[in-house]
Design a protein around this nucleic acid. Sequence first.
DNA 1: TTGAAAATGAAATTCAATTTCATTATCAAG
DNA 2: CTTGATAATGAAATTGAATTTCATTTTCAA
Lengths: 164, 164
Amino acid sequence: MLQRRIDDHAPPTREAMREAQDIFFKHLKRVGLKHTEQRDTILRTFLETRDHLSTDELFRLVRKKDPKIGFTTIYRTLKLLAECGLASEVAFHDGVARYEHQFNRRSHHHMVCTDCGVSVEFFSPEVGKLEEEIGRKYHFDATRHTFQIYGICEDCRKNGKRVI
Amino acid sequence: MLQRRIDDHAPPTREAMREAQDIFFKHLKRVGLKHTEQRDTILRTFLETRDHLSTDELFRLVRKKDPKIGFTTIYRTLKLLAECGLASEVAFHDGVARYEHQFNRRSHHHMVCTDCGVSVEFFSPEVGKLEEEIGRKYHFDATRHTFQIYGICEDCRKNGKRVI
DNA sequence: TTGAAAATGAAATTCAATTTCATTATCAAG
DNA sequence: CTTGATAATGAAATTGAATTTCATTTTCAA
């Protein structure tokens, strides 16, 4: 399913980029991995997006910058980025894993159109509080949550049922 | 990943069972499908559980009652049950789709231990309100939501890191 | 009773996710 | 600088849940 976003998109500043690279390479050092050209290219490409990218979609973007970088490396690098908090997985239940970058982003959630796949971000601090509260109540060490709302967007409602 | 639940479990009354069967067979009729022995057995088996079952797990349970029923029929019947609201999919992100029955169940959410897989239900009416509110704000016709909290349960925290 | 339509289930297929492995690159120590 | 141990890379193979196919059987309205 196609994955547009209807929110605005500010490209990262040079400074933000350097800060993110710093986080990534400190993480690599910490877990005994190496700094490579490929990982850097992938990180930079990823930060320039604000979409919800599947591994394959990021692969296509990275390929424009360096056609020699393989799918497997994208796949593994996304896992590393998720490990150090620069990326997070968003599960929209359309059969593929998607990632969005989390650098300098406010905590947010998504509402997804089940017809055309478009998503909107929304902000809802209550949900974070709920996580903490419920965790405490049931003696879980709550680490994260997922919250998505599904429905039909205005456009799809107007245009009627899609054929494809 | 194994999927225990730590909530209580009341088996369905004979009356509840009949009511659910009624909903299912009315649905079948409505969409022009037929009433079969297999579908009835699958529904009854499903209602007797309150776990979060993968298709394969339900298949194993059904097989005890009628070893001739195949996996494919379970798979298709679960989709039908979801269509008429008797089942709903719960995505715990452990790589398999799970279903829980929704008949005579209060609206609830799950908190899942990322170590051992155990889950607890919790009740949080605020989340439903939030769905409605956000939908209105962004002009979506909101139909459903997913909300899960992930963390480490008390047992796993005490026992330390699992080996398996 | 009957025949058109649907259901069944074993097997095959699909496809994203993940692993394998031979080759290449990184980098800390000398 | 070397060097060599260790990790990274990427093409290809594998995995496994989800889904489809298809020949046969069952359902049920007329």
